[in-house]
Design a protein around this nucleic acid. Sequence first.
DNA 1: CTGGTGAAGTGTTACGTATAACTTCCGGAG
DNA 2: CTCCGGAAGTTATACGTAACACTTCACCAG
Lengths: 336, 336
Amino acid sequence: MSRPATRPTSRDVARTAGVSQATVSLVLGGKWRGRVSERTAGQVREAADALGYRPNLAARNLRLGSTRTALLVVPALTSEFFARVYTGAASVAAEHGFGVVLYPSPAGVGPATSPFDPGRTALDGVIASSMAVDAPAAIHGSLLPLVMLDSDPSAPGAAAVVNLAIADGMRGVAAHVLELGHRELLHLGSAVVSWTFDARAEALAGAVRGAGARLRTVRAALSVPDAREAVTAALAGPGPRPTAIVCDDDVLAAGACKALRRLGLRVPEDVSVTGFDDLALATAVEPELTTVRLPAERVGECGMAALLAVLDGRDPAAGELGVELVVRGSTAPAPR
Amino acid sequence: MSRPATRPTSRDVARTAGVSQATVSLVLGGKWRGRVSERTAGQVREAADALGYRPNLAARNLRLGSTRTALLVVPALTSEFFARVYTGAASVAAEHGFGVVLYPSPAGVGPATSPFDPGRTALDGVIASSMAVDAPAAIHGSLLPLVMLDSDPSAPGAAAVVNLAIADGMRGVAAHVLELGHRELLHLGSAVVSWTFDARAEALAGAVRGAGARLRTVRAALSVPDAREAVTAALAGPGPRPTAIVCDDDVLAAGACKALRRLGLRVPEDVSVTGFDDLALATAVEPELTTVRLPAERVGECGMAALLAVLDGRDPAAGELGVELVVRGSTAPAPR
DNA sequence: CTGGTGAAGTGTTACGTATAACTTCCGGAG
DNA sequence: CTCCGGAAGTTATACGTAACACTTCACCAG
């Protein structure tokens, strides 16, 4: 009794159980209430077990014309923001029998690259988070329904956009810092361009403008060493030293703290620092960062819900998710 | 001329171009050198373009009996170790026309859970990294070829295991710490059980045993707050205070540093701390961590290469990848 | 004039599944 | 005794693609 090299099919199960292939499909598909007797169903399941039968997913997907699988495109894997987005999306998906597959866009979020090549994985739809403005065009070529997260609301080609109140969050940071008496600010922005970072920069500039405070901007890649370098360089320049550094991101803030410490400056006594996103890193560094908490899971949940709505032919609910300022130890009143 | 609601198929392209479906398949499949005239091929491509034709991947996968897609199962998304493993695996995969899909095992690496439900995504094989010992059994039920990374070499059901010289790495750490004169050690281990952490614990115990030093062990979940709490509790207990804390992981080490600082102890002057993995976090904290660098990309590369070999019917090359001790600012001679 | 050969396509089939449409059987109402 | 209807299956088909095997035709050697 030598096993055949090929995987058993539903027909093999049928032969073993002494029934037709259709019956196997009915039983294993779970829709046999009243179509197949209890005894026959048992035999089918037994045979399937004995052969170690697994349905061929490619065939099922072809037949059903759907894979019940969505692709989540993210610019980076390491960020727990995206990990949490995934968690939210996957949980909603699971409730509807959907799966979620991750695709880290290799070239990051730069323009002029085609950040979309999911290979041979058959998909029903795409959710793209925090991508560059021109990403939709590339993805649109796949002809799949597209939902965007944390992106330009006017993105062309997107069936829905789920957004965060980024501007509100940054305005909250600005209000907090200004209230503490800071008037000489440094904005540590992201060198990566995307809607979410543009929105942060713009909101900060807008909030500071009418407040009689000065704002300078430098940019760095989203890594601690790069941020440290950028801040070190900025503080070495001429002009008055900033008393607060407002960062686009917690990682940048961690780098800023590091640069300050190396320069012999204390956080927050000499210089206040703020982050954004409220990553685990925000509480891992010393002092813990004042930052803005984003409901990442909810973003994923809403994104998936919107995609499911689109696939269903329904109208996806629009809306903006609120954010929350979290004040911790990295901000203090401006030194006199 | 209203568009039909359904996607165009290769037959639609054929009709438009005035040829047979077989010809379309030949042209678009790229194997027509000498089978189809240049002019006809051009017409086919033109028609495909005009209709916006995209091949149905489910159908193609069914026909070919292969999806040229591998699943990479990881216990967590946020860790950049796994992000780097993915990068390596994806690059080797791409060279062979393969894609890699990520699946974060939801329940982490605990036993008694079935950490494997890739949904309806059709796959050719599975690569599982740093999973619990009983994970292979669950995955094996999928009948797919399985390659394991950073796991028990005797894992049943695995077609190949790509491993790291974890024990060498930890022995290096131990030698470094002992050489600095430390004799009272605390081991901050991972509460999550998996081969890689067992190997670290065992190697450390073995290295310390014959060296006339004392070793105590506490465990914590892989997060900064948990690690901090565990270390705080351990130092509050009776007995002599350790002069060095050897951690299973950089995240744990960051937590340990934080606990020490809160207790008014300086790193490394009062207590030395070591990490493991050399994550970005290792250089984000102050002082930067002495740790062990793992060739994560190579792990992914070798894993994918092994899987491709198995799928090809060849023997996967076995082997263990070397690691490197990185000495930074978190270790110093033991205080007198 | 025959036969062979290569170029250029086409007809047909199979991949494995899900399901609509059909058959068969049997018990009971009329 | 007929006829109806439900239970329990089965037969047949389609999903869209890739590729094998076949046809057609023109051209040329013998």
